[in-house]
Design a protein around this nucleic acid. Structure first.
Length: 607
RNA sequence: GGAGUGGUAGUUCAGUUGGUUAGAAUGCUGCCCUGUCACGGCAGAGGUCGCGGGUUCGAGUCCCGUCCACUCCGCCA
C-alpha cells in the first residue's frame, strides 16, 4: 500500500495516528537541521517535518520541487498553526521517507498565481493541470456533467452513443474530414452535431435521448470556441416547444443548485428574437442590466411607437437625416463624464472592430439642463424630447449612434455591453437566464442570393407560416429587397437559452414529415437528386411513422466556463487547442508518413 | 481572408531621444539558519533582445518582410 491517507484529509482529530502519504513536493523550507516539506496531491497539502536524522539523508539526496515522495510518520499537532489551509493544525513527524521519483525543475511555478504564460502552460499542460486553479475548473466541469446526467436519467432520458465517422454535408460549418483506407477516394466527416442521428432515434421510438458528446467544426477559433467541443445533446418526441422549455429550465435550475448551490427559483424571462434585436441589438442579450436601445428613427422592421419617435430627431443634422437607423442608449448616472471620457467613447466606437464614424452624446445634467455634442443642430426642447424618448432622467448620459441598420445595431449593442462592463453591471457571480424565441427560419445569403437555414434545415416553421413556405417560390428576384420576400418573415419553432449574454443552448421543434422536409431542402436550393444524395436516409425514415419531435443542445464547455466565472473555455478543457487549432503539447496536427498516404491512395499537393 | 496587441534571463516583465558593461522580480545553484508555511540572510550563475533584411559611425529601440501567440471582425446551419 503506497499510502494510508491523502494529503487533504488529516485533521487535529487524527493526532497520534501513524500514517503514510504519497504526493508531490510543493515546497521545501530548510531551517538548519530541520526541514519542512509541503506534500501535495489532488486533495490538498500536508506539511511534513523532517528531523535532524532524516535531514542528514537530504544532504546526499536533496529534494526538489515536484519530486514524488512517500513519507511515513506520526500525525502531530503543530506548535504554530496555519489557519489558511485545511490541514494547517497538524503535521507529519516523518520517521522515514522514500523518493519515488525525481523531477527536473518545472518551467513555471505550480501555484494558483503561476508565473507561467498561456503558451508555456499549454506546452506543459500536464504540469499546469497540477495547479489548483485548473483542477477546480475540471472539478466544476465534472460536477456539471454529473448533475446533468442525474437530472436527465431521473426524467427517463437514455444516453445513446452515435457515430463519429459519418457523412459530410457541407451545409453550415466546415467539416473535419477523415479519409477511408478501405474506400479509396472517399471520406468520412466528423459530426458537427449528432443532429440527424438523434432524429432517427426518435423515429426508432427512443422518446427521450441525451448524450454528452464531442462535436467538431473546422472554423476559426475564439476564446470561447474550440475545434472539438462538447455538447449536452438532447431530443424528445411527442413534445411541443413549451414542453422542451419546461424540461430544460428544470435542467439548468438543477445544475445551478447542484454545482453552485443557487436556488434559481425566479421565472426565466422570455423574449422574441425581434424584441431582443431591437431592445438589445443582439440575439443573446445580457439582461443583468438595462440600458436598452432606443430607436430614434423609423425602423425598417415593425416596432412600437415608430410614428411618435420619428419626428424627434428632425433637424439640419445630416448624419441623422441620412442614416438608415439612429439608436440611442441611456447610461445612468454618467452625465458628469468629462470631455476626456466622452472622447474616449467616441474613439472606442471608431475602432475597426466597431467601425462607426462617430458618436453623439447628450448629457442630461443633474440640474435638469442639457449639454450635447449636437447642440448646434438641436434646440433645448428637442434634446428634452430625445431624452424623454430614451426614458432618461436627470444625471443620465445619452449616447447616440447613426448609420446602416445592422452595423449600427451591432455597434449599439457592443457599446451597451462595454458600458455595462465599465460600470460594473456584469458581475461574474450574478446569473440571469433568458429564452430567446421565434427566430427567423431563414437568413439571406448575399453571396449566393439565396436562403440559408438560420438554425439548421431540420427546424420546423411556425404552424401559421407553413402555408407561406409551401405556397411561395423561394427564388429571390430582387436581391436589394429580399426583406420583402415572404420567406423573410417566416418564423421558426426555434429557441435559444441565454445566460449573461452568452448563448448556452439552442434547439428547435423539428420537421417530421417528408413533404415539408423536402420543401425545406428545396427552399435552401437543393434539388431532388441532391436531397436524396445528402439526406435520403432521413427522408426515407420519415416515411415509416416519424413522430413529432424536438430537442436542444447545450454548449457544455461554455456553460462550465460561465459558471466558473471565466471568459475563456480553455481552462475548462483538460487538453485544449490554441488559437490556430494546434495542440502545442503533442504538436498536432502534423505531417504523416509516406506509407500512410500510399495506403490511403492520397497524394499531397499543398498550395 | 482582415484588424489590433505582444515576442528581451528558466519564467513574468521594465528598458527614456538610436549611444559605454541590457535591468528588476521570481525561479535556479551554493553557504548560513530549530517553527516555517510567499520563511529569512549572504553570494553566484543565467541573454542569438523571435527570425531575415535594411537605414545608420552605431539598432533591443527606426523601416520592410516573415514566423509565433493572444484578442476581435469575417466565419461558426
Amino acid at each position: 500500500m503506497f499510502r494510508t491517507n491523502t494529503c487533504g484529509e488529516l485533521k487535529i482529530t487524527d493526532v497520534n495516528k501513524t500514517v503514510t502519504l504519497a504526493g508531490w513536493v510543493q515546497t521545501v523550507r530548510k531551517f538548519g537541521s530541520i526541514t519542512f516539506v509541503d506534500l501535495r496531491d489532488r486533495y490538498g497539502i500536508t506539511q511534513l517535518l523532517l528531523n535532524e536524522t532524516l535531514n542528514a539523508q537530504l544532504e546526499t539526496n536533496p529534494l526538489g520541487r515536484e519530486f514524488v515522495l512517500q513519507a511515513s510518520g506520526k500525525v502531530t499537532e503543530r506548535s504554530s498553526k496555519n489557519v489558511n489551509i485545511a490541514t494547517g493544525e497538524i503535521e507529519i513527524a516523518v520517521e522515514r521517507f522514500t523518493i519515488l521519483n525525481k523531477s527536473i525543475t518545472p518551467p513555471f511555478t505550480i501555484q494558483d498565481d503561476t508565473d507561467g504564460g498561456d503558451e508555456l502552460r499549454m506546452k506543459y499542460r500536464f504540469l499546469d493541470l497540477r495547479r489548483n486553479a485548473v483542477k477546480k475548473n475540471l472539478e466544476l466541469r465534472y460536477a456539471v456533467g454529473r448533475s446533468t446526467r442525474n437530472y436527465l436519467h431521473e426524467n427517463n432520458f437514455m444516453d445513446i452513443e452515435t457515430p463519429f465517422l459519418i457523412k459530410s454535408t457541407p451545409e453550415g460549418a466546415r467539416d473535419f474530414v477523415v479519409p477511408s483506407r478501405m474506400n479509396a477516394g472517399q471520406f468520412y466527416a466528423l459530426p458537427q452535431s449528432p443532429q440527424t442521428f438523434k432524429q432517427l432515434l426518435m423515429v426508432s421510438g427512443y422518446d427521450r435521448y441525451y448524450q454528452i458528446v464531442k462535436c467538431f467544426r473546422d472554423e476559426d477559433l475564439r476564446a470561447d470556441r474550440q475545434p472539438e467541443f462538447t455538447q449536452i445533446d438532447c431530443e424528445m418526441c411527442f413534445v411541443e416547444q413549451e414542453d422542451i422549455l419546461q424540461m430544460f429550465e428544470g435542467l439548468v435550475r438543477r445544475i445551478f443548485k447542484d454545482v453552485k448551490n443557487i436556488d434559481y427559483t425566479e421565472v426565466i424571462e422570455r423574449m422574441t428574437w425581434e424584441e431582443a434585436m431591437w431592445q438589445y441589438g443582439n440575439d443573446k442579450p445580457d439582461i443583468r442590466f438595462g440600458i436598452k436601445l432606443n430607436n430614434l428613427k423609423f425602423p425598417s422592421h415593425t416596432f412600437a411607437d415608430k410614428e411618435n419617435i420619428s419626428s424627434i430627431i428632425t433637424s439640419d443634422f445630416a448624419v441623422f437625416n441620412e442614416a438608415e437607423t439612429v439608436l440611442a442608449i441611456c447610461v445612468p448616472n454618467c452625465s458628469d463624464y468629462t470631455r476626456k471620457q466622452t472622447d474616449e467613447l467616441v474613439e472606442w466606437v471608431k475602432r475597426p472592430q466597431i467601425g462607426m464614424k462617430g458618436l453623439a452624446f447628450i448629457k442630461y445634467n443633474t440640474d435638469g439642463t442639457f449639454k450635447s455634442s449636437i447642440d448646434k443642430f438641436f434646440t433645448n426642447d428637442q434634446l428634452k424630447n430625445i431624452a424623454a424618448a430614451c426614458h432618461a432622467v436627470a444625471g443620465d448620459l445619452i449616447l447616440i449612434l447613426a448609420g446602416a441598420e445592422e452595423k449600427t445595431r451591432k455597434a449599439a449593442s457592443d457599446l451597451r455591453m462595454y458600458m455595462g462592463t465599465t460600470l460594473g453591471l456584469r458581475k461574474a457571480d450574478d446569473f440571469k437566464l433568458l429564452w430567446v424565441l421565434d427566430f427567423p427560419l431563414f437568413e439571406y445569403d448575399e453571396d449566393g442570393n439565396r436562403w440559408v437555414a438560420r438554425h439548421h434545415p431540420f427546424t420546423s416553421p411556425k404552424p401559421v407560416d407553413i402555408n407561406t413556405m409551401i405556397n411561395n417560390n423561394p427564388a429571390i428576384e430582387n436581391a436589394a429587397e429580399y426583406l420583402k420576400h415572404p420567406y423573410a418573415n417566416i418564423k421558426a419553432n426555434a429557441y435559444d437559452m441565454v445566460l449573461n449574454g452568452n448563448e448556452i443552448g439552442g434547439g428547435s421543434i423539428r420537421i417530421f414529415q417528408r413533404e415539408l422536409q423536402e420543401k425545406m431542402f428545396a427552399a435552401l436550393g437543393m434539388d431532388a437528386e441532391e436531397q436524396q444524395h445528402k439526406f435520403g436516409f432521413l427522408l426515407g425514415a420519415f416515411e415509416y411513422g416519424a413522430p413529432p419531435h424536438g430537442g436542444i443542445a447545450f454548449g457544455f464547455d461554455r456553460l462550465c466556463s460561465i459558471l466558473g466565472g471565466s471568459e475563456s473555455i480553455r481552462d475548462f478543457i483538460a487538453f485544449p487547442k490554441n488559437n490556430s487549432g494546434r495542440d502545442v503539447m503533442i504538436d498536432a496536427p502534423s505531417t504523416i508518413d509516406e506509407k500512410q498516404f500510399e495506403e490511403l491512395q492520397i497524394r499531397l499537393d499543398v498550395k
